[in-house]
Amino acid sequence: MDTVSPLERVLRGLAITVVILFFMFPIVWIFLMSFQTNETILRVPPSVVFEPTLTNYTALITGKLETAAGTLEIAFMRNLWNSLFLSTASVAVGLLLGVPAAYAFGRLKFRGSEDIAFTLLSFRFAPPLLVLLPLTIYFQKIGLADTYVGLIWVYQLIVLPLILWIVRGYFEDIPADIEYAYRIAGHSWFSTFRKIALPLAGPGIAAAGLLAFIFAWNNFIFALVLASADKQPVTVGALAFVTASGIQYGQVAAGIVLSIAPTFALALYAQRYLVEGLSLGAVKG
C-alpha cells in the first residue's frame, strides 16, 4: 500500500494534527497554566510566553495556599493519598468479588443469571444522586458515613459492574473445551478456574482493573456527599481552590496535573491491554 500520493499524505498529516490539537489542547493548556501565577493566567490577551514558576506545586505539596486574603491550609497531598487508597482498595475488592462472579455468569448458565447480570449493570444507568440521598441516611444510621469502608463499598457501584462485564466477556471467549480438557484430565472445577480460566483471562482482568481504577479515581459525587475533608479524594479536594478571594487557577491546574499523572501513566503503560480489553468480547476471534 505505498500508492499514497504526496498530497494525500500531507492532507492526512494535517487531519491528524487537527485532531490531536483538538483533544490535547486542554491538557497542554492546563499543563502550561500550572506553571503560571493567577495574574499571568488571567491577563488579556492570553499568551504562551511567560515566566515559569513552581509556586503552585510548592503550595500544593506544603499545603499552604498563599492568596490575596492570606495563607490558607489545604490538604491536597492528603487528598491525593485518599484517591490512591480509595481507588486501589475499591478495585481490589471489586476484583475479588467481580472476577468469580464474572466466571459464574460467563460459564454457568443458571436460572436468572442474565437478569442478575443485567441488574448489576443497571446500577450504572441510575443517576448517582438518586442512590446517594437515601444511602447517606442509611450510612449515617449504621455508622458508615465518612468512613473508608463505607466509601469503598459505595465505589463498588462503579467498579463492580465494569469488572463483571468486561471480565465475563473474556471468560466466555475461552473455549469451553479447554476447561473441559483440564477437568477430564482429573482436576477439580476450582483448580480449573485457578489454573486455566484465570491465567487465560489475565489480560482482560488487568484491563478491567485498570479501567475500574480510572473510573474510581475520577469519581466525584460519591465522595463529595459521603466523605468529610480528611477522607476526600483529589476530585473533591480541588474544590478548596475556589477561595473567598477568587479561583486559584494556577493551583487548580497544578492539582489537575498531579492528579491525572498516576492514571495517565497507568493508561500509557497498559494502553495495549486497555484497547484489547475493551474490544475483546465485541469481536469474536
Binding site: D177, I178, Y180, A181, I184, A185
Partner: peptide, 13 residues
C-alpha cells in the same frame, strides 16, 4: 477418562 478433542483444546499458556 482420557479425551482428545477435535479442536485439540490444548492449554495455550
Amino acid at each position: 477418562i482420557g479425551m482428545a478433542f477435535q479442536n485439540f483444546a490444548l492449554f495455550p499458556h
